[in-house]
Design a protein around this nucleic acid. Structure first.
Lengths: 254, 254
DNA sequence: TAGTGGTCTAGACCACATC
DNA sequence: ATGTGGTCTAGACCACTAA
């Protein structure tokens, strides 16, 4: 069987992997390289099979895994598309806040955003470490408030590596409709692929308490999120303070 | 193609579903019925294929999904086994607490348990509603403390439907080594399949503060977990108070 | 009607575990 | 050597979408 050149040429070939895993890696490379942009259709299974000289079933298994990991979206009768945070289906994929009443899944549409700050500055040491950039390098700091029915619910502080987000301004941010990750895709070609969150309970203090309209000392959820793009490259650090008097963080365990 | 009788006979057949989904449903039924117990091996793919009169590939797809949903565990060369909470691999599958330092995945082995209470009583209205039993029906209440290096970290209050857990005593609980869900499997034939958690930040108060050795008013994570067995039947309500000064709740978003 | 993904089959061969 | 799951193929047919 003809070994796949691009993989065979990879630095320090890792022993052995099934064909479909090699195909998957190739597709991931091309996604990362931006060959197909978020929302675009990728070639059909038959065409990819022909291109890679494997059977359709092998391509299918590779695509199945990529679809399951939220890189691709399959649509029967139409084709397979690059996943995007700008869609209805995936909107607020990363926001796990739920209203206490709201039965089941009424998503947090009608969350009003209020931009508090957007400025470029040198990254503090802690931020630089998380984003894997040099301490003191340029970074973008964003602070914003999410409100529900006029009441503040979430106070976000967001840190982005400066060089990757050239041209990001308060204007661009506040005029953008839809999820912030959609803006990142459209303007900066950066797709968030995975995130990890560390959740703690903390006491509201100072400015934060005032902005969230709670008394100092009120328990709040502190959600520290580190989001990654392709290749496990961290590109966003987000510290969110959540009021949980009318909302809660929902998690499904399997 | 010979339709699968057991499925065809199901009440109000739901239009149409692929063959492998029907096989999956049949396997789930047998798991639920206890035909194969946790940790046991199920018949080989070939045998199931023969039994159901479908191809091996169709059985494979059904098993693949069940494995992915943590009902089954595949082991190459050995067979396919019913998943269990008593294994190393899945131990503490539902406990997301991580030490703040601890690098990556050192799991919370060396969490010491201290049983505070285990008694039978009438279920309070709120508990009954969650467990879908009648208000005032028999229930088991368990309270326990998890400690790390002598320091209290988690205070759990657990509610179980009384009839399902006949014979559960404080002795059985405190003498059991390994995860509590392992005991539930071994003694009561109840496998936890899925759980949902609602997380909030609350202030420590009264007894709870004392037991966790924190000052009243200290922010704590309140984790309300509802665990389900087969057929989405709720069988455990757990309210955990987590100290998050040295630990955090970790979540992966994809 | 043509093109796409979705299902199902049958058979060959590989990798792993056990005897 | 045997039995298990894992990979790969080739081809048939179904279900959905759009022109």
């Amino acid at each position: 069987m003809p070994v796949l050149d691009a993989v065979a040429a990879a630095p320090s070939a890792p022993a052995f992997s099934p064909l479909y895993q090699q195909i998957k890696a190739l597709l991931l490379q091309r996604l990362q390289a931006g060959e197909w942009k978020p929302g675009e259709m990728i070639p059909s299974e038959m065409e990819l099979a022909a291109r890679f000289k494997v059977s359709q079933g092998t391509v299918r298994k590779a695509i199945d895994e990529l679809a399951q990991e939220n890189h691709l979206v399959r649509r029967q009768g139409k084709g397979t598309f690059v996943a995007t945070h700008a869609e209805e289906r995936t909107q607020y994929r990363f926001l796990r806040l739920m209203p206490d009443d709201g039965g089941g899944n009424p998503p947090q549409t009608r969350l009003q955003r209020r931009l508090l700050e957007c400025r470029r500055m040198r990254a503090p040491a802690e931020v630089a470490r998380a984003l894997e950039i040099k301490s003191g390098e340029a970074a973008v700091q964003i602070r914003r408030l999410l409100l529900h029915a006029g009441e503040p619910v979430v106070l976000d502080e967001i840190w982005l590596p400066g060089p990757l987000f050239k041209g990001l301004t308060a204007d661009k941010l506040s005029s953008w409709r839809g999820p912030m990750y959609g803006l990142f895709e459209a303007e900066f070609g950066l797709r968030m692929v995975r995130a990890e969150e560390k959740i703690r309970a903390v006491a509201a203090a100072g400015d934060d308490a005032a902005l969230l309209a709670v008394a100092a000392g009120t328990p709040l959820l502190l959600v520290e999120r580190l989001s990654h793009t392709y290749g496990d490259r961290p590109v966003e650090l987000r510290r969110g303070l959540y009021r949980t008097d009318r909302f809660h963080y929902r998690n499904e365990l399997q």
